[in-house]
Each structure stands twice: as C-alpha cells, then as structure tokens.
Simulated scan of single mutants.
Amino acid sequence: MTLLSTAQHLARDTRSDPRSHMMLIMAAVSIAAGAVALVAYLLWPTWVARPAGGPDRLPVSVGATLFNVPTSAIRRKIQRHSGPQERVDLNFLFPSLDAPEAPKHVSADTIEDKAQPIDRIFVSISAHHDALAPDMRLRTIYPRYLDQAATPINDGLTLRAFRDGSPYANEDLFVATTPTFHARCTRDGLTPGMCLTERRVDGADLTFRFPRSWLSQWRDVAVAMDRLTAQMRGARG
C-alpha cells in the first residue's frame, strides 16, 4: 500500500510539474533496485562452495586383508583407489606419523646442492602368497650368514654383521627383545644407510624402511611401526 500511495502522489505531482516526470522515473528505479537487493539478500546461500576432493582414507584389500590407508600417504597415483590391490606404497612423516603434503615442484634454480635429510618412514604393503614369513626368515635364514660376534649398541639393541660374500654382504642385523625389534640395515657409504623390517598381517607383509641413523632412537621407531600397523588395520572410514 505504501508503494501504491507513493506512486499515486508522484503521478499527481507530474501533471502539475513536468519536471516531476524525471523524479518519478528515478523514484521507480530506486524502489525496484531496493526490492531486488532485498530479495537477493534473503535468498543468498549461506554455505561456501569448496573444491571437491577424494576421501581422507581408502579401504584397500591386499592379500585378502583389509587396510584403511590415508589417501595422501599413498606414493603412487595408480594405487589411489579402493578395492583389491597387489601392493600399496605409503610414506609418513616421523615422528608425527602424519601423511606428508604433496611434493613441491623442484627445478634447477630451487634445488639445493646438499642432500636433504629423510624425515619419513616408508611402508609397503604387499601380498605374500605364502612366502616364508619374516619371523621365520629371521630365525632360520639370517643366522646362516651372520658373524658369530654380537656387539651391544645402545639401550638393549645388539648388532651382528653379515659375512662378506653372503647374499647380505655390507649389511648388519640389529635385534632387541624388549620391545621386540629387528632391522636389516645397509652400511653408510656414498649414500646414508637404510634399514628395513618386516611383519606379517594375515595375507599381507608390511615392509618398513627408515634411515639407519634413526637406530639411536630405535624404541621410538618400534612404537611408530606398531602405531601405523594398528591405525591401518583398525581405522574404519
């Protein structure tokens, strides 16, 4: 009713004063613009559009064994899908065990001359197809190629070197009993030594790789491997 009265009033003024014709047009435009602004304000969505992305975790089956793995931890794009797979390769930051961010582009202008320290633990999950279990290899295969001498290292960790000429030449075996821990490590040379340790979970073998220098905190590494195994086996969704 207010808008109708205003229009009628302006119409009367227009007949008496021709200049009011322009005022009438301007008033109508202002009223229409205000109405449009009010409707737009009331109908404007309150949600914020976000780019679509994949799930945080993926259920994968390796060796008929279910694992829930962080999507961003998977190292190879071709493996970033749910369902049965023969092998999945992952990496996690240490000691946080968070999935790393996507790697940045490196060019000749940005790369540094010195090698960057490895700050992550690598995990491969693969179907074992009834191959010899890691604990059996530790008890029955490795002792055939080890030197007899055992050297205490630190905090309950013991070193035994593999003999020269053996399949594991230039490697050492590190073993502890409390907690149970073992790792086969290459020796430092032109490149820093790396360690691997394996464990079996139903139809899959988990292979963990980390720098040999981390053996100074081997208990933390052992806990990290236990945590990662539990998270990938226990997380759902």
Rank of each mutant, 00 (worst) to 15 (best):
M1Q: 14
T2L: 15
A7S: 13
A7N: 11
A7H: 05
H9I: 13
L10P: 01
R15F: 09
P18H: 06
R19D: 14
M23L: 15
M23F: 14
I25S: 13
I25K: 07
M26W: 11
M26A: 15
V29W: 12
A33G: 08
A35L: 15
W44G: 04
P45Q: 06
T46N: 13
V48D: 14
A49F: 11
R50H: 14
P51Q: 13
G54S: 10
P59T: 05
S61R: 05
G63P: 01
T65S: 08
L66K: 04
T71Y: 05
A73V: 01
I74C: 04
I74T: 07
I78M: 12
Q79P: 00
R80Q: 14
R80K: 14
G83N: 12
G83E: 10
R87H: 10
V88H: 02
L90S: 00
F92M: 01
P95S: 08
S96V: 00
S96Y: 02
S96E: 08
A99K: 00
S107Q: 02
P117C: 11
P117S: 13
V123T: 08
V123Y: 01
I125Y: 02
A127K: 09
H129C: 08
A131P: 01
A131S: 15
L132D: 13
P134L: 09
R139K: 14
P143F: 06
D147N: 13
D147W: 06
Q148W: 10
Q148A: 15
A149R: 05
A150T: 12
T151R: 11
P152M: 10
R160C: 11
D164R: 10
P167Y: 09
Y168L: 14
N170V: 05
D172R: 04
L173K: 03
F174G: 00
F174L: 01
A183Y: 01
C185I: 02
R187P: 01
R187D: 05
G189Y: 01
L190Q: 10
M194N: 02
M194L: 10
T197C: 07
T197N: 11
G203E: 06
L206A: 11
T207I: 15
F210L: 06
F210D: 03
P211I: 06
P211N: 09
L215G: 03
Q217E: 13
Q217V: 05
R219T: 07
D220G: 07
D220E: 07
Q231G: 05
Q231L: 03
R233H: 03
A235C: 00
R236Y: 02
G237N: 04
